[in-house]
Design a protein around this nucleic acid. Structure first.
Length: 420
RNA sequence: GGGGAGGUGGCUGAGCGGUCGAAAGCGCCCGCCUGCUAAGCGGGUAGGGGGUGUUGAGCUCCCUCGAGGGUUCGAAUCCCUCCCUUCCCGCCA
């Protein structure tokens, strides 16, 4: 969330950012509640100060004549602070729904069409036959099964089988090895269920609860991304500045209700209620966060380059930025069968927006006061859509699929999927 | 699921109605001392909020001893509820 005094000082900037993100921010209500809360607080504290003073005197003198006044004060403190607490509670609620501001380098725009391509890598592969979609390939090779998945779980689920399942496992391992061995990330296996406080910490709540699955009868949510448990890993802590930056990589399933996506991407292994992802999370000093975003994005790109997949990088316009994001790049891999790019990674910096919510701080040097860290995360990469791009890019006329070289060691040396 | 123990500052840990935001130790910071290092000596060192003010000084008030309620003029200390940790038993991959 944004600091209250920032909203006090720059209400117009907060309003503008919200508008350009296509969100709303209850700035006027906040300013009004803030003023009333401070008044009530001052009143409560005055009474409390007198109460404390008299209480000390009473402890010393046992002067019974003080008691009536002290009773009065106790009553008055109770009343004023209840009022202040109630105002503060409403204020905090509103603060949680104010979207983050964004960096000046973010292009102003409304829809995905206003996102700007910042670079491309590779070229679209050409075929001397009509390339098939990944789901045509996958079903023909019997390595993807959507029909049975819908009977077992419902729509937007899939089975991977045989070399398909193996391929996803190989990709996960390849990515984890790359990020841990060459990019300096620490591997984390996180809880796949988290509590409400953690969902609030990363700003998946309170506004986006309908996008997540909740476990009935428990204060637990299925994680929509490993970002949630991993960013919250050090919640309520004051980290030693010398330990920063923290770099974590986590493989996990992700569960999403896709509530707002009815009718969208209904075919194929593209938009599922459950998919797997290798997620990168960085916790850095505030001064380094924009540079860290470039670094993180580069780490995700490296996966695509080694897989030999044509891709492009887009900087998201204001309207396509999430509620909490300060700046975001999307990585899109080309899928020749679908004939379009699929988003396989989203790399974002949040500044201290999540850190405030999760109370995630560090001490720059011994003796110095704590500061909020900056948090970042990005997929490195989403496995489902990466498989799609691999199948479609490396398909052959006979329906088999060449295994990209970097994956072969993880596939037991297998070079071709679907060979008889 | 049943029973026991416990949650206090960056850490360990005392306190068990007022003199406690809290002993002691560790760590850390500043200074002194020893030719360097180690040791020693002195001082300092929780987080958050309000007001005022400076603008990253200060002054002042308030809150916080897992969370929330209650008793009391007054709660880290007493009572209730909840959460979490840990140990033993049961169950279980």
């Amino acid at each position: 969330m944004l600091p209250l005094d920032f909203i006090r000082r720059h209400p117009d900037e907060v309003r503008r950012a919200a508008r350009l993100k296509g969100e709303t921010a209850p700035v006027d209500e906040i300013l009004d509640l803030d003023r009333r809360w401070r008044e009530a607080t001052t009143r409560a504290e005055r009474s409390r100060a007198e109460q404390n003073a008299l209480s000390k005197e009473f402890a010393r003198t046992r002067e019974q004549a003080l008691i009536p006044r002290m009773r009065e004060l106790a009553e008055s403190v109770k009343r004023s602070s209840a009022e202040a607490d109630e105002l503060r509670r409403r204020l905090d609620e509103l603060l949680l729904v104010v979207p983050n501001v964004f960096h000046e380098s973010v292009p102003v725009g409304e829809t995905a069409d206003d996102n700007v391509v910042v670079r491309e890598w590779g070229t679209r592969p050409s075929f001397d036959f009509t390339p098939r979609t990944h789901y045509e390939i996958g079903e023909a090779l019997d390595i993807m099964d959507f029909e049975r998945a819908s009977r077992v779980a419902g729509s937007r689920f899939a089975f991977l089988k045989g070399q398909g399942a193996r391929l996803e496992r190989a990709l996960a391992q390849f990515m984890l090895d790359l990020h841990t061995r060459e990019h300096g990330y620490v591997e984390v296996l996180a809880p796949f269920l988290v509590n409400t406080a953690s969902m609030l910490g990363t700003a998946n709540l309170p506004k986006f609860g309908e996008d997540a699955f909740r476990v009935e009868g428990h204060d637990l949510w299925l994680i929509p991304t490993a970002e949630v448990p991993v960013t919250n890993l050090h919640r309520e802590e004051i980290l030693d500045g010398a330990r920063l930056p923290l770099n974590y990589v986590a493989y996990s399933p992700c569960f999403r209700s896709e509530a707002g996506a009815a009718g969208k991407d209904t075919r194929g292994y593209v938009r599922l209620h459950q998919f797997s992802k290798v997620e990168l999370v960085k916790v850095v000093e505030p001064e380094r966060s924009l540079a860290a975003l470039e670094e993180l994005t580069g780490h995700a790109e490296e996966v695509l380059r080694r897989l030999g997949l044509h891709y492009r990088v887009l900087v998201m316009c204001s309207g396509d930025l999430g509620f909490a994001q300060y700046k975001k790049y999307d990585l899109e891999a080309w899928c020749p069968g679908l004939g379009r790019y699929l988003e396989v990674s989203s790399c974002s910096v949040f500044n201290d927006f999540q850190a405030r919510r999760a109370n995630l701080r560090y001490r720059p040097a011994p003796g110095e006061p704590p500061r909020y860290v900056h948090t970042l995360n990005g997929s490195g990469l989403a496995l489902a859509r990466t498989i799609d791009a691999v199948l479609e890019t490396y398909q052959r006329a006979d329906g088999t699929v060449v295994v990209p070289e970097v994956l072969r060691p993880y596939m037991g040396g297998c070079e071709l999927i679907g060979a008889a």
